[in-house]
Design a protein around this nucleic acid. Structure first.
Length: 581
RNA sequence: GCGCCCGUAGCUCAGUAGGAUAGAGCAUCGGAUUCCUAAUCCGGGGGCCACAGGUUCGAAUCCUGUCGGGCGCACCA
């Protein structure tokens, strides 16, 4: 379960040793960079088990041609007992075939490591803070939050699996004017709960039904003491009460998706602690904040534009279009002003920061990255910081835009969606495409239990394995690793595919792309279904062959491990590995 | 006008640090079920990887430009 233990990393090291030997012999110049050398399974399995481009990459430096260098490498690699053949192909690829013992050992690894198979020490315990969701605490979660929530959560799990020490964080924006609106809307519902006819909810207030129980709660708690009173007497109180209620709601919504954050950081508390002031002071001292006047935005006509002097952060120094205000004209912090201080707070307990944002916030990435870079470097602790954008999801029903929810007032909630199609479908759907392309989510298609819907396909593979295990147990056949030599090419091919999992985890973690795991699982499920169906044409190829208990035990052992890998991958994505469909 | 993301089969999407003949599913056509779950499998047809240049042994992948779609562009969050 460490990076150096995976099969591919192991062979990578062997090839590296061969190159080092060639360097010692003077074939390769001393200290020549080998970081472009790749060791990976070839796309076409007929080429072998492993391929390396070493000869092509290094030929120039060795002052020879790729094929000549390849021959030298092949000569040394052939000496390895686990290498059964090493061939030069095409422009200079070296294709290796590995002894079947390699795969038998790998299968044993899966059995031995169980739920830990695929975990990696790549992250080396590096502390990564992943901030995701961070929806405003003004209502239930809606579709706009869903993709970022699932992708962020899966990414956090993936990094954890790959050996990082991960904190899942939610930034609660409880300090802006939107929570004032929330408090006023709640006050309206409070009066309603006390029997007043409040009529239509006025424009500018939150109209959703979800505030009705909040109003009732406030009425029960405070009676009529805040009716007809000046806003100053109740606003702060109603704010904190309503935000708390909304956060409970949001936590419940997230729980429906199987998401749980470690830290909920409050913007109001951040401000109360004077963090933004500290940041401003430092930035001013380093001439990164100055008082200036913004230009009128281009490409947009504004009737009420007035030039105002504001404290501006020099984000243009970092490639942004214009400098950005950190305070408003009333002296309060802008979102950005508080946010940069918030990122410094996160950086205190982390080695690396990742934010997951919706694509509608793409315009603000440059300024926050600039601010974090300036502050962290300036304060002597530069911190890697990445903002991952997830693109918009369009909700459809039979190809038409989906209707809004009554519960929410004006949007489709996550609760509605999960109730209708289920957590696993929602999560897997969001994870079977790369996040940086827009996607459509069609209720009608997504509930179909078919190939249209890959989650069932993968779950079915796992369920089929469980069912086979149950049947075998009933017949008194137990999986054993004792007769691996009975396994043929079909079985070995399946092991080879499952053996990619640790490598896949590391690659996905490195690229921060959890969707790769979903596609890997789909492919593995597909390979298993094919294998399973071999038994339909030829009874001798069934997993359980009554007359041959040794063979059956070996095959059972194999599919048991395939099931284990499917289970591990599904767990990583937060999807149930069901045992029956 | 500017910034960011996307453009791969009729449709929905993959394409692993630039690698070998670009892959799946759906749809379509043809097959497999007295047999471990057919929610499955096997096979056929279907591509100027938007377009044009460039980088190099090699480009769907990197760079530049053009076209098309999405998102954003006050002190909102």
């Amino acid at each position: 379960m460490s990076e150096n233990n995976t099969l591919y990393a192991g062979f990578s090291a062997k090839i590296d040793a061969v190159l080092a030997a060639l360097e010692a012999e003077g074939v390769l110049p001393a200290g020549c960079p080998r970081n472009n050398v790749s060791v990976e399974p070839p796309r076409d399995a007929s080429h072998g088990d492993l391929a390396t481009n070493a000869a092509m990459v290094l030929a120039k430096q060795a002052k020879t041609n790729p094929r000549a260098l390849a021959e030298l490498i092949v000569e040394k690699l052939s000496a390895d007992p686990f290498v059964t053949s090493a061939e030069i192909a095409g422009p200079g690829f070296i294709n290796l075939r590995l002894d079947r013992a390699v795969w038998e050992i790998e299968l044993d690894q899966i059995a031995g490591q169980g739920a830990d198979y695929g975990k990696s020490a790549m992250g080396a315990g590096k502390r990564v803070n992943v901030e995701y969701v961070s929806a405003n605490p003004t209502g239930p979660m809606h579709m706009g939050h869903c993709r970022g929530a699932v992708v962020g959560d899966a990414l956090a799990s993936l990094l954890e699996y790959a050996g990082h020490d991960v904190v899942r964080e939610y930034y609660v924006n409880d300090a802006g004017s939107q929570v004032d609106t929330l408090a006023r809307s709640a006050h309206l519902r409070y009066r309603e709960a006390l029997g007043e006819d409040i009529g239509e909810i006025p424009a500018g207030m939150y109209p959703g039904d979800y505030l009705v129980p909040v109003g009732k709660l406030l009425a029960d708690k405070f009676g009529d003491q805040f009716v007809g009173k000046d806003e100053a007497e109740w606003l702060a109180l109603f704010k904190s009460e309503a935000v708390a209620a909304m956060m409970d709601q949001i936590r419940a919504d997230l729980a429906m998706l199987g998401i749980k954050h470690d830290v909920f950081a409050s913007e109001a508390e951040l401000q109360a602690a004077g963090k933004p002031e500290e940041a401003e002071k430092w930035l001013r001292a380093h001439d990164l904040v100055y008082d200036g006047i913004l230009e009128q935005p281009k490409g947009k006509v504004l009737d009420d534009w007035e030039p105002v002097e504001l404290p501006l952060f020099r984000s243009t120094k970092f490639g942004d279009d214009q400098d950005r205000p950190i305070r408003k004209s009333d002296g309060k912090w802008t979102y950005f002003g508080a946010d940069l201080a918030y990122h410094m707070q996160k950086a205190e307990g982390a080695d690396e920061l990742i934010d997951i944002w919706g694509a509608d916030h793409a315009g603000t990435v440059k300024r926050i990255k600039a601010a974090v870079a300036a502050l962290s470097e300036g304060q002597g602790k530069p911190i890697p910081f990445d903002v991952k954008l997830v693109q918009m999801v369009q909700l459809l029903r039979n190809g038409e835009p989906a209707k809004m929810s009554k519960r929410s007032g004006n949007f489709v909630t996550i609760a509605d969606m999960v109730e209708e199609v289920g957590k696993d479908v929602v999560r897997f759907s969001m994870l079977t495409r790369k996040p940086d392309a827009q996607m459509d989510f069609d209720f009608a298609k997504v509930v179909e239990t078919s190939k249209e819907n890959p989650v069932f396909y993968v779950q079915y593979a796992h369920a089929r394995i469980c069912s086979t295990m149950r049947k075998a147990a009933a017949e008194g056949i137990v999986p054993t690793a004792d007769n691996m030599d009975l396994m043929g090419d079909d079985e070995l091919a399946l092991i080879k595919q499952a053996a990619q999992f640790p490598r896949e985890v590391e690659a996905a973690a490195r690229a921060r792309e959890p969707h790769r795991i979903a596609f890997f699982l789909y492919d593995l499920a597909s390979a298993f279904h094919s294998y399973y169906n071999l038994g339909n044409d030829d009874p001798a190829k069934r997993i359980i062959v009554a007359q041959q208990p040794d063979l059956s035990s070996a095959r059972l052992f194999l599919v048991q491990q395939i099931g284990q890998v499917l289970k591990n991958g599904l767990a990583l994505l937060g999807v149930e590995a069901v045992e029956e469909l």
